[in-house]
C-alpha cells in the first residue's frame, strides 16, 4: 500500500507553492521593462516565464507520481555496500540524528555572520571555532584554543600580506586604540 504523504510529495508541494510565486513574479516583471525592450525577441522576463511554467509542471509531476517501486537495483555488491555507508539519513532514521547539535551550529553560524564586521575577523572566528568544537563534544581545551587561534591568524596573514586585501582583524574600538 503506497503511502499518501511521502517525502517526495511534501517537497513537491512546497516547491509547487514556490513555483507559483515565482511564476507570478516572472509575469509581473513586464512592468519594469522600458519601452524599447518590450518588442525585443529576448526580454528579461522571457526565460523566467518559461522556467516558471516548467517548474509548476515538474512539481505537479513530482506530487502525482506513484510512490512505489523506487528501489534501486544494483548488481554491484561493493558499490551497494559503500553506498550504504555514504547514504544520507532518511526520514526513518530521524530519531537518532543529533538535531540539537545541528540547530546550535546553525545558530552559531548566524551569530558569526552578524558580528563578523563589528567584532573583527580574528576574535569572532576564534569563538566560532571554539564554540563549534565545544558543542560537538570536544573537551581538549589546549588543543582547541591553539587551533581556534591559529586558523584565523593564518588566513588573516595570508589575506593581508600575500593577497593584500583588507579584512578588519580586531573589533573597531581596539583598532582605533592601536591606530589602525
Amino acid at each position: 500500500m503506497a503511502r499518501l504523504l511521502t517525502p517526495d510529495r511534501i517537497i513537491g508541494v512546497i516547491l509547487l507553492i514556490f513555483s507559483c510565486l515565482f511564476t507570478w513574479a516572472a509575469f509581473d516583471l513586464e512592468k519594469t521593462i522600458p519601452p524599447f525592450f518590450r518588442n525585443q525577441p529576448m526580454r528579461l522576463d522571457t526565460l523566467p516565464r518559461i522556467l516558471g511554467v516548467f517548474s509548476i509542471i515538474a512539481s505537479v509531476i513530482t506530487i502525482i507520481s506513484p510512490t512505489t517501486g523506487a528501489k534501486r537495483v544494483s548488481d554491484n555488491k561493493q558499490l551497494k555496500e559503500s553506498e550504504d555507508r555514504m547514504a544520507d539519513l532518511s526520514f526513518e532514521t530521524f530519531g537518532q540524528a543529533k538535531w540539537g547539535q545541528l540547530c546550535a551550529m546553525i545558530a552559531l553560524m548566524f551569530v558569526y555572520a552578524s558580528v563578523l564586521r563589528l567584532g573583527g575577523f580574528i576574535p569572532t572566528t576564534f569563538f566560532l571555532l571554539l564554540f563549534g568544537s565545544i558543542l560537538l563534544g570536544e573537551r581538549r581545551w589546549i588543543a582547541m584554543v591553539i587551533v581556534s587561534l591559529a586558523a584565523p591568524l593564518a588566513i588573516w596573514l595570508l589575506v593581508t600580506y600575500v593577497l593584500q586585501r583588507t579584512i578588519v582583524p580586531l573589533p573597531a574600538p581596539l583598532m582605533n586604540l592601536i591606530g589602525g
Binding site: T125, G132, S133, G137, V147
Partner: peptide, 15 residues
C-alpha cells in the same frame, strides 16, 4: 577528529 574538522569546514566555506 570530527569535533575539529566540522567547525573548520564551516569556517572555511564562510571565509
Amino acid at each position: 577528529p570530527r569535533t575539529f574538522l566540522i567547525p573548520f569546514v564551516l569556517f572555511f566555506s564562510m571565509v
